[in-house]
């Protein structure tokens, strides 16, 4: 039921782990199923220079986590913020309908990490 792309990211997830002394941290839980994700970022000149994730969840949760880090790496904060659940699902060649909610973890996790960075650095741009 999962696309080849999802399985590929599940098999070989990118950017797993945790950045030491990160500039921003996002920690989210999925209200639907109780799954969890923690994302850490390093920011230089408003660009996401490095990003890592840790996720406890289903195949889709792990694949979307991996994909969001791949999409966001090297992106300006302003653009990274705009990555939606749908963008992530599309990049994975889609998710089964009952698994669409899983991508909420990845999208919210990233946004929260950026928000955390902003609140620490007082920047609003």
């Amino acid at each position: 039921m999962y696309s080849e792309k999802v399985m590929e990211h599940f098999r070989d997830p990118r950017n797993v782990g945790e950045i030491e002394n990160p500039d921003g941290v996002g920690e989210v839980g999925n209200p639907t199923c109780g799954d969890m994700m923690r994302i850490t970022i390093r920011v230089r000149d408003d660009v996401i220079e490095d990003i890592k994730f840790k996720t406890l969840g289903c195949g889709a949760a792990i694949a979307t986590s991996s994909m969001v880090t791949e999409l966001a790496k090297g992106m300006r904060l302003k653009e990274a913020e705009k990555i939606s659940r749908k963008d992530i699902a599309d990049a994975l060649d889609g998710l089964p309908p009952q698994k669409m909610h899983c991508s909420v973890l990845a999208a919210d996790g990233l946004r929260e990490a950026i928000g955390d960075y902003r609140s620490k650095n007082g920047s609003e741009s």
Binding site: P13, V16, E27, M36, M37, K54, T55, L56, I62
Partner: peptide, 9 residues
């Protein structure tokens, strides 16, 4: 592997 990938690891 899955435990290592978990934020609760």
């Amino acid at each position: 592997r899955l435990r290592a990938m978990s934020p609760l690891g």
